[in-house]
Design a protein around this nucleic acid. Structure first.
Lengths: 207, 207
DNA sequence: ATGGTTCTGTACTGACTTGTCAAGAAGGGC
DNA sequence: GCCCTTCTTGACAAGTCAGTACAGAACCAT
């Protein structure tokens, strides 16, 4: 009965995400979003309720994509849990996309956690952004903790270690590489960091 | 011969830093800086060459203050090196000011690395900001690596471990807590992370 | 083909932005 | 006490910002 939308919602949000990543929230104007997505001002306001709406929905979409990555990469039988953790850690510190349907980022900067970047810029005054970033952290920490528990059951990690503590530590390392990897360290150094962190995981005492 | 300045340069830059921290670079206007520092527009342009100049000089001042912290906290005899590292790590993840003349931050968000925050927002398109952030990372990593070497000489850390790798790993953890601590994790959890990281440091094999 | 509904693009407004400029204030040397 | 130099203040102009409103285009059902 009516004219259908001529754009793909997810595609537009993804383009907006790239723009926000590149220029930050306050650094991108609605015209920038318009140019990046190809949509006119009117369409943007009708479909996403303006700049802030675009951000929230782009972050929500990002979260939905992100959440699948660690879960799929880390879930599985107890046997290979430690190896999965190893592989995940190596990919994560290099910012390799965690979801299969996400194209690889051009550089480490563009691969950093979108939610964390936005939260650092405007999270202090934007509770919704803050909450979304929190959710992103939680989903990773939960998946990692579950994998640590699996590795413990398999006898690959010290059963006395607190899996949540380890998971948060690994999450912190991954988020830290977003920062130091984007603006300081080389990919080779990032690999060293991931390998060092993995090597330091507490192994069972009894042999 | 001429009228002297009526403001203290460092004091003004510090106020500007607080404002940039709170609102981000693109989120603060020159009027905001003017209000935060008490200086008029003209004075700001005359003394600091505008908004970008204020940022660069505020970051430079921050770097100068920051650099003293880790060096003083970590330098010393080989004997207490491991303990110094432990104490430093605990304070760093909580964002406790590293320099003595810096007042404690009101919350973990305000304590995060100023250089890292600015670099994440505009570093991609601002080489000077990027370089300053890099310098901040380097000074911490260098001081930590030196302390690790001291601990190795004292037999408290596995001599086969690469001190630079460990230092970068610890730096990454500290930077990571800036992110997850500001927008997710509780102070108690941050303590756990620091303690876990410290406990995982490789001890000498021979006993 | 036609009508009705929705989408799309553009022009517009009011507020805010940055950087500049000129006039006045303040202090130190003589 | 006077003058010169520098600092400070507020106002100004040009440009940009977000958000709105309106007119036209596109599509589907009948």
């Amino acid at each position: 009965m009516a004219r259908p939308r001529s754009f793909d919602r997810d595609h537009v949000l993804h383009a907006a995400e790239r723009q926000f990543r590149a220029s930050g929230y306050n650094g991108t104007s609605v015209d920038d979003i318009s140019a990046a997505t190809g949509l006119g001002r009117g369409s943007l306001y009708a479909a996403f309720d303006g700049k802030h709406g675009v951000l929230l929905q782009a972050m929500t979409g990002y979260f939905a994509r992100l959440a699948q990555g660690p879960r799929k990469a880390l879930a599985g039988p107890d046997e290979g849990a430690l190896e999965r953790l190893h592989a995940y850690l190596l990919r994560a510190v290099h910012g390799v996309p965690l979801a299969a349907d996400v194209p690889p980022a051009p550089d480490r900067t563009a691969a950093a956690c979108f939610a964390a970047k936005m939260a650092l810029e405007i999270g202090a005054s934007d509770p919704e952004v803050k909450r979304l970033a929190n959710d992103c952290f939680s989903v990773v920490a939960t998946a990692v903790a579950e994998c640590v528990r699996a590795a413990q059951r398999n006898g690959d990690i010290d059963p006395d270690a607190d899996p949540d503590d380890l998971a948060y530590l690994l999450l912190t390392i991954i988020r830290g590489t977003d920062v130091v990897g984007a603006y300081g360290l080389s990919p080779a150094r990032l690999t060293s960091i991931a390998e060092s962190a993995f090597a330091l995981l507490p192994r069972p005492r009894h042999r």
